[in-house]
Simulated assay, not measured.
Amino acid sequence: MFINFLRNNKIAAGVLTILRIYVGYEFISAGWQKLSSGGFDASGFLAFAVKSATGDHPAVQSWWADFLTNFAIPHVDLFNFLVPIGEFAIGLGLIIGCFTKTATFFALMMNFSFMFSGTTSINPQLVLLSIFIIVAGSNAGRFGLDYFIKKFVPKMSEIKEKGHVEKRVA
Rank of each mutant, 00 (worst) to 15 (best):
86 G>T: 00
36 S>A: 15
69 T>F: 07
65 A>K: 07
71 F>E: 08
89 A>H: 01
74 P>Y: 06
46 L>W: 05
88 F>K: 00
52 S>M: 14
98 C>K: 10
63 W>C: 01
70 N>D: 14
100 T>A: 05
24 G>D: 05
46 L>S: 05
30 A>I: 02
42 A>G: 06
35 L>Q: 03
25 Y>M: 10
61 Q>R: 15
111 N>E: 10
37 S>Y: 10
124 P>A: 02
106 F>I: 01
19 L>F: 15
65 A>T: 01
72 A>E: 11
104 T>A: 14
111 N>H: 04
96 I>W: 06
25 Y>I: 10
55 G>D: 04
108 L>I: 13
44 G>E: 06
97 G>Q: 12
73 I>N: 06
116 F>D: 02
58 P>E: 07
90 I>F: 06
84 P>C: 08
110 M>R: 02
115 M>Y: 09
102 T>M: 15
47 A>G: 07
93 G>V: 04
53 A>R: 13
38 G>H: 02
31 G>I: 00
78 L>I: 13
69 T>Y: 01
19 L>P: 09
52 S>K: 15
84 P>F: 02
51 K>W: 03
67 F>A: 07
74 P>Q: 08
40 F>S: 08
36 S>C: 03
120 T>G: 10
96 I>Y: 03
119 T>A: 03
110 M>H: 14
92 L>Y: 11
106 F>K: 04
79 F>N: 02
72 A>H: 06
22 Y>K: 00
51 K>V: 00
80 N>V: 06
34 K>G: 00
126 L>W: 10
95 I>Y: 12
28 I>W: 09
121 S>T: 10
88 F>I: 00
45 F>E: 04
96 I>D: 00
111 N>L: 12
119 T>N: 03
74 P>M: 05
69 T>G: 05
116 F>S: 08
103 A>K: 02
107 A>I: 01
105 F>K: 05
118 G>Y: 09
97 G>S: 09
86 G>W: 00
76 V>F: 10
94 L>I: 04
109 M>Q: 05
43 S>F: 01
22 Y>M: 08
105 F>P: 14
71 F>D: 12
53 A>G: 08
93 G>Q: 05
52 S>W: 12
125 Q>C: 04
57 H>A: 11
29 S>W: 10
69 T>P: 12
106 F>P: 09
18 I>Q: 01
118 G>C: 04
97 G>C: 12
95 I>L: 15
121 S>I: 05
85 I>A: 12
41 D>L: 02
99 F>G: 14
103 A>H: 05
40 F>P: 03
38 G>D: 03
20 R>D: 03
24 G>M: 12
118 G>A: 07
50 V>N: 03
38 G>I: 01
86 G>I: 02
71 F>Q: 14
48 F>R: 15
36 S>F: 07
31 G>V: 00
55 G>N: 10
78 L>F: 14
73 I>P: 07
87 E>N: 08
103 A>L: 04
94 L>P: 13
19 L>C: 12
114 F>Q: 06
91 G>N: 07
76 V>P: 00
71 F>S: 13
112 F>W: 14
121 S>N: 13
108 L>Q: 03
44 G>I: 01
86 G>F: 00
122 I>K: 09
